[in-house]
Every structure is written in C-alpha cells, then in structure tokens.
C-alpha cells in the first residue's frame, strides 16, 4: 500500500534523529559563529581628509521602507580640509528596533557615508542598544564593515544604471 511506506519512513526519521546530537546554538551563553558576510549594525564614515562624509542629502531617509532614519540637514559651509562649500548633516539617528536590515540606505548613499558593520553583541540587551545616535554611528566606524558600500554596489550593477552607462564600461567588477 502506498500509505504504509511513508508512515514507516516518518517513524524511521524521528528515531534516527533521537540518536543525533542536538544542533541548538546556546547563543547568549556561548559565542556563536557568524557567516563571513554577516552584518547587523550601521556606521557613518569619515572621508580620508578627516571630514564627515555625510552631506545630509536625506536620500537614505526617503528610501528607508520602515522610516527609521532621521537626518537633520545643516546649512552648506566650507570644508575645513578642502575649503570647498558642501552639505553637512548636524543630526543623524537610526532606530534599529524597526530596521528590516534591507541595506537600501547603504545602496542609495551617493558619498559612501553609511555602511553596515559587524557588532559583537547583536542585537543587544536593552532598547537603548538599538537606538543609534549620530555619536554612536561615528563610534561604530572603527568596527569591521561590510565590503558593500554605496558606490561599489552601484558599480556592480549589471547592466549599469543609466546615469553611468556611458562612463562605467570597465568598472563592472563582480560583487566586491
């Protein structure tokens, strides 16, 4: 009968599992191995010349599906490093409690200011751990960050976005 074989198969599967070791990860009590590309939190970066990279363009705030990013745009002023006039953010908050970790803010950033980072204790033990102020975002800069930053992800688009189609023919390095 076609019913009996699967019934016995189910019994065999469960009894075989009984002799195996559990695969449970005792996560908060023992360190857990993360995948190499695992990333959980965010950081804001400085440019090589020491300026804050964020220009306060609010693109990340607009694209965020769960609307957890709030950017306070400051008036344009001269950069202390280069002397050129550019935009600044005077406030930047990101609420990880509602973040869906889609990384769209990273992809849309025109100046590679925001990146995703690995943090040792993710997701965190208190609510405050999940609320990233501008200060904490810049502190996270020291943490190892994911290779995917805005410009490299845009460059890896295939076909290239229309804005860069003519210029970026050789720049298609595969998923950096």
């Amino acid at each position: 009968m076609s019913v009996i074989a699967p019934l016995l198969d189910a019994l065999r599967t469960t009894i075989r599992n009984l002799g195996r070791k559990p695969i449970t990860a005792m996560h908060p009590f023992e360190p857990r191995t993360r995948a190499p590309r695992y990333r959980q939190s965010f950081a804001l970066l400085h440019e090589a010349n020491g300026d804050e990279a964020c220009i306060g363009c609010k693109k990340c705030e607009k694209i965020c599906p769960s609307e957890v990013i709030v950017v306070g745009t400051a008036a344009k002023r001269e950069s202390p490093a280069t002397g050129k006039k550019r935009g600044w953010a005077d406030d930047f908050t990101l609420d990880l409690q509602a973040c869906i970790v889609c990384e769209l803010c990273v992809q849309v950033c025109p100046v590679d200011a925001i990146v995703m980072v690995r943090v040792p204790n993710a997701p965190g033990f208190e609510r405050e751990d999940l609320f990233l102020t501008m200060k904490r975002l810049y502190e996270n800069e020291a943490l190892p960050h994911a290779p995917a930053i805005g410009s490299s992800m845009i460059a890896s688009h295939n076909p290239a976005p229309a804005s860069q189609a003519q210029a970026a023919a050789p720049a298609q390095e595969p998923g950096t």
Binding site: N17, L18, R20, T24
Partner: peptide
C-alpha cells in the same frame, strides 16, 4: 525532552 531530541533540539 524526547520530542526535543527527535527534532534535534535540547
């Protein structure tokens, strides 16, 4: 306990 082990849990 028994069900846990059958499902590879603790």
């Amino acid at each position: 306990k028994f069900a846990g082990r059958m499902q590879s849990r603790i």
